[in-house]
Nucleic acid binder design. Sequence first.
DNA 1: ATTGATAATGAAAATCATTTTCATTTACGC
DNA 2: GCGTAAATGAAAATGATTTTCATTATCAAT
Lengths: 121, 121
Amino acid sequence: MSRSNPRVLSVLERAGGFASAQEVYRLMQREGESIGLTTVYRALQSLVNDKIVDILRRDDGEAIYRLCGDAHHHHLVCKGCGGTVEIEGGAVEKWAKVMAEEHGFRDVGHTAEIFGLCLKC
Amino acid sequence: MSRSNPRVLSVLERAGGFASAQEVYRLMQREGESIGLTTVYRALQSLVNDKIVDILRRDDGEAIYRLCGDAHHHHLVCKGCGGTVEIEGGAVEKWAKVMAEEHGFRDVGHTAEIFGLCLKC
DNA sequence: ATTGATAATGAAAATCATTTTCATTTACGC
DNA sequence: GCGTAAATGAAAATGATTTTCATTATCAAT
């Protein structure tokens, strides 16, 4: 019953542990892998069930799948050129943990992103 | 240019300050108000621009619009029931500011959300 | 009141991610 | 080989949201 297709997992890893179903599909196509979009969705769903990946939502509502246990980082995104810088987020981790505990939430994750204009833009 | 339809705002208030566009539309229909779905979307979008309502996402990706005070805050969202708690984010504000400065970014904003399971779920 | 410009409206069509259907193929135990 | 259950994927369906575009309301200036 496990449809956790290893090829899909591998692509997600190579994508930096962060991608939408559509992106995973496009990546595999570009690499010449033969796979259907349906299978990508099913594999990702299965990985979520197995708690190997986390599902979250982008601002536009598209689902993005993130490897669990990924030492996760945050992004500084430039609104001008779209460039991103990975940044350290210790303060955020702590904040999320404290806030969740304070309200009795469990099984918590978080997202945090900073956007602005970089030096060049 | 302000399309912040007061009828839509009123419905959102009466809905407990929390509803999706589709729900607002259905509510207004039920109350015999004549309005188009498109207008509901535009009104809500306008209210978001005017920072009168907040937009966030349900687990299924549907956008929900929520009345908010002017104070910039963050959300603790339950993956189970969709309930949200407004939380204090001083630590995040500081973090965002420091990180942006460190990389020479200007005109910065940020998003930060914590999600998990609340006590009841 | 009439005209004209501008903004608002909403029905219908388009878009796009995601899910479902279903016929076909693959894998595996016998 | 044979049969069965799982996996696959193309195509259709779904559902929220956006776009298009023709119509209507608003309102200031005459």
